[in-house]
């Protein structure tokens, strides 16, 4: 149990997928303009990432094994795309309201490199199925956390008096760097 808690804290704070591992930067910069959309994207990614981490772990263990390790990237991408599609259909049926909110972000997750990144990192770290699941969940929560924090910062930036040359993306990049530096402070948290 302690192990799983450690994985969760480790992936959310210490090895934050976006701010430390530098994965999934595209949605991090792209959908962080508004807090509302950041929440939506975070929720959708959390769902998909956790499922994808579990599914890819199962596939790696029972289908590919060591012999067909070279099929990992290919098969993981196929599985991720499938899960995203499935999630989209499922949400559309069960909760039209949620679909309205998440709708456009769901297909975007297929190309989120954090999803594939987590799946491959799971293999690299030789996680078991449960560990993979927690690793995925932690990574996803970390992603959502970074996204929401960053979106909140950018909303503030809109009102701030930024020099003309730094307006928009440049100051957002600088902010992302600072946020990343701040997260480095967590590196001493888990020994």
């Amino acid at each position: 149990m302690e192990n799983y808690a450690l994985i969760l804290v480790g992936t959310v704070l210490v090895n934050n997928i976006v701010l430390t591992k530098m994965l999934g930067l595209c949605p991090f910069m792209g959908v962080s303009k508004k807090l509302e959309t950041a929440f939506g994207m975070g929720a959708a990614t959390t769902f998909v990432l956790t499922l994808a981490a579990g599914a890819s772990s199962l596939i790696n263990e029972y289908l590919l094994g060591a012999d067909y390790a070279y099929l990992r990237t290919l098969s993981f991408i196929v599985v991720i795309a499938g899960i995203v599609q499935f999630t989209e259909m499922f949400i559309r049926k069960t909760s039209p309201v949620l679909y309205q909110v998440l709708g456009i972000y769901l297909p975007l997750i297929t190309t989120n490199c954090a999803v594939l990144g987590i799946a491959l990192l799971n293999v690299q770290a030789q996680h078991t199925f449960l560990e993979s699941l927690f690793f995925g969940l932690g990574g996803a929560i970390g992603f959502s956390l970074a996204l929401v924090i960053f979106a909140a910062m950018r909303e503030r930036l809109e009102a701030a008096d930024v020099p003309a040359y730094f307006k928009g993306s440049p100051i957002a990049m600088i902010n992302a760097g600072l946020l990343s530096l701040a997260f480095m402070g967590f590196s001493g948290l888990v020994k």
Partner: peptide
């Protein structure tokens, strides 16, 4: 050949699941 089989099998399974889901979860 096994690699091809694995990939096509995987694609087939996912395809079937998605096809089933498309019918099952058809939004009105």
């Amino acid at each position: 050949l096994t690699a091809i089989l694995i990939m096509s099998g995987l694609a087939l399974v996912i395809g079937v699941i998605l096809g089933f889901a498309a019918i099952q979860f058809k939004a009105e």
